[in-house]
């Protein structure tokens, strides 16, 4: 009983300690992000690492989502006599929820693990210390550039997932019910407005912020040698995925209240 209480107290302490240190880290990264020197070359390199290199994976994930949505909803809508709604259901599902969330989770897996492992490895091999001794702020050079890259690239990658999802959704649909792409798009988008499209796409910037901050934080606090690097990579993915899902709930409600369609 006493052991349980001590364990619970330790767990709570660790939990609140994590948030406290994460808050401190976010403040440092925010302060480092403004003001010279601008690490333009490193920012472009990170945008390439986050954006271009995630492109194929995100496109395939988006395409798979489009096909699955088409297959799953076709039968249901036919049963309810709403087959004509199929393009709109696919398009709205993808642009409002599936595209953004799937993109964020895919990037959190690929990029989050990479950042956690890379910065963790730099921490345990004293490369981050070497940077500090060279009078270079690692919060700017390492963290700020990666966070900004994630923040900027997530909305663009979401567009890729949306486009490939809608395109493959059309291909899947047209195999069972022939329809031109133009008609499919017209039918899918005729009720859509910019407010259906922009808020869900730009909410992924928040997801990018979460991935960048959590992964850099977990990486830069690594300890315990190579085992610690592995733990940082895993925890970067787990924590950023969890926070993305929680943030999505809040953001969806926020959009409904403040930016209604």
């Amino acid at each position: 009983m006493i052991t349980d209480a001590i364990e619970a107290r330790n767990w709570l302490e660790t939990f609140f300690e994590w948030f406290g240190e994460f808050g401190q880290f976010c403040v440092r990264v925010a302060r480092a992000s403004f003001g010279a020197p601008w690490e333009g070359r490193e920012l472009v390199r990170q945008m390439d690492a986050v954006g271009s290199k995630s492109f194929p994976l995100v496109a395939v994930a988006g395409a798979a989502t489009g096909v699955v949505l088409s297959l799953q909803t076709h039968a249901s809508l036919t049963r309810f006599g709403a087959k004509a709604m199929l393009p709109a259901v696919i398009v709205f599902s993808i642009i409002k929820e599936s595209g953004p969330v799937i993109t964020a989770l895919i990037v959190s897996g690929r990029v989050g693990a990479g950042i956690g492992a890379e910065l963790g490895s730099m921490r345990v091999t004293e490369q981050i210390d070497a940077m500090e001794v060279s009078a270079v702020n690692p919060y700017k050079f390492l963290a700020s550039t990666r966070v900004l890259a994630c923040l900027c690239m997530l909305p663009l990658l979401t567009l890729v997932a949306d486009a490939s999802g809608i395109f493959l959704g059309w291909i899947s649909t047209t195999l069972s019910q022939p329809i031109t792409f133009r008609s499919f798009l017209h039918s899918g988008l005729k009720e859509a407005t910019l407010s259906d499209f922009l808020p869900p796409t730009f909410k992924t910037a928040v997801f990018g912020l979460i991935i960048g901050l959590v992964s850099c934080f977990q990486g830069m606090r690594t300890s315990g040698g190579t085992a610690g690097v592995g733990r940082s990579a895993t925890s970067s993915v787990v924590l950023s995925s969890l926070l993305i899902i929680l943030a999505d709930v809040i953001l969806v409600r926020f959009i409904q209240v403040f930016l209604p369609s």
Binding site: T125, E126, Q127, D129, A135
Partner: peptide
């Protein structure tokens, strides 16, 4: 501190080169 660090060189145990 960074102004002072510019006048300090540090050779780390494992060299700590940026890999």
């Amino acid at each position: 501190l960074n102004q002072i660090r510019k006048k300090i060189g540090f050779l780390f145990q494992q060299a700590a080169l940026y890999d």
